[in-house]
Amino acid sequence: MTRTTEANVPRCAGCGIPLQSESQTRPGYVPESSIGKEVAVCQRCFRIKNYNEASSVTVDQDEFLKLLGSVASTDSLVVHIVDLFDFQGSLISGLQRFVGNNPVLLVVNKIDLLPPVTNWNRLRNWVQKQAREEGLKVADVVLCSARRNIGFDRVVEAVTAYRGDRDVYVVGATNVGKSTLINRLISDYSDLKRELTVSRYPGTTLDAVHIPLDDGKNIIDTPGIVYEWRMSEIVPRKDLAALLPDKPLKPLTYQLNDKQSLFIGGLARFDFVEGERQSFTFYLAGSLNVHRTKLERADELYADHKGAMLSPPSLEDLASMPPWTRHRLRIPPNAQSDIFISGLGWIQTNGKQGATVDVHAPRGIKVMLRESLL
């Protein structure tokens, strides 16, 4: 078996975890014959890259916070990547106290999910306002899509403008597209011939990865922080593809009378409790089914059809998820509001008379009213 000291321990070229050949059940396992290679990839990253197969390896979040806390003592540019589809769910709470006086560049990924007719200036202003409300001071906001290579030239320009001769720390929640963006930064700033592991599964980057730049500085990719208030963190992994859209969202508009309910698969329920007849527009992944019923029949429908017609999740997987809890929201008259369900999407309200609605979602999932995104 290969043993190394902490000072010279080799690390995975994909996720940055220290490599070891002693136990296949521990993070960072590689066969002993591979551990000395110049570019070695752990078994977990190999499986993700070649078979799209996630493992159950997790990382202690105290270590993540310790790592994030060290950023304040450096002279760095902090690039915070957020997921536009899950903006309030993927913004790092309290980031300002961790970064000190270092400038923060807010990169908003996955804009390809929005309609082409979106007013991008209005969207950028919306992002700036939401960030301010969360107490985050940002030097700039950049909108992009790493997947579609939209706006990435602007990301590179902004990093160049604000970096100077600093290192670049890249931070974000799990599954916001950090590794995809960093791969693109590598191609512009470094001749390093490797790619980070990119996966749709949360928690792919297990440790800080230092990527040397041509000017002697580094891009530091930090592990994604896990927020359990996001639906994408608590659903069974096989259902993630149903939640995470990979195509532009097709809004679903429903004209509802009060006392009607809509189920979003078996993941959440929306009740129009009180108000004049009005429309509600759902922005969800296209693979999720929405079922309408009368409020008085909603409990019975769920009891009879959860895990089957009302899925995901399956009936078997329901046991591993938290029970639903109810959130009552009162929408003021003439308000342009979204009902945001973290990791699942949002519901745009369109009524001028106001409304009272209930959202039933797994306990702990963030549900809130916000200013309308679109």
Rank of each mutant, 00 (worst) to 15 (best):
R3D: 12
T4C: 10
N8K: 12
N8S: 15
G14V: 07
G16Y: 07
I17T: 13
S21R: 06
S23G: 10
R26E: 15
R26K: 15
Y29G: 09
K37Q: 15
E38K: 15
A40I: 06
F46N: 13
N50L: 11
N50D: 10
Y51V: 06
N52S: 06
E53A: 09
L67E: 10
A72Q: 05
D75H: 13
V78C: 03
V79Q: 02
I81C: 02
D86I: 03
F87V: 02
Q88A: 07
N101H: 14
V108S: 00
L114N: 05
N119T: 01
W120T: 00
N121T: 06
W126P: 02
Q130A: 13
E134L: 14
V141F: 01
A146V: 02
N149D: 14
I150W: 06
V155R: 00
E157F: 05
Y169A: 13
V170W: 03
T174E: 13
K178E: 07
S179A: 11
I182E: 10
S187Q: 14
S187L: 12
S199E: 04
L206Q: 15
A208T: 14
D214V: 15
D214G: 13
I219T: 07
T222N: 05
W229M: 10
M231R: 03
S232W: 01
K238Y: 11
A241T: 11
A241S: 14
L252R: 14
Q255R: 15
Q255V: 06
D258K: 12
S261R: 04
I264N: 01
G266P: 07
V273D: 13
R277Q: 14
S279A: 15
G286I: 05
V290K: 06
E300V: 13
A303M: 12
L310E: 06
S314V: 09
D317F: 07
P323A: 14
T325L: 02
R330Q: 09
S337K: 11
I341M: 12
G343A: 05
T349L: 04
T349Q: 08
N350Q: 14
N350H: 13
G354E: 08
V357T: 09
I365S: 08
K366V: 09
L369W: 05
L369D: 07
R370T: 12
E371A: 04
L373F: 01
L374R: 05
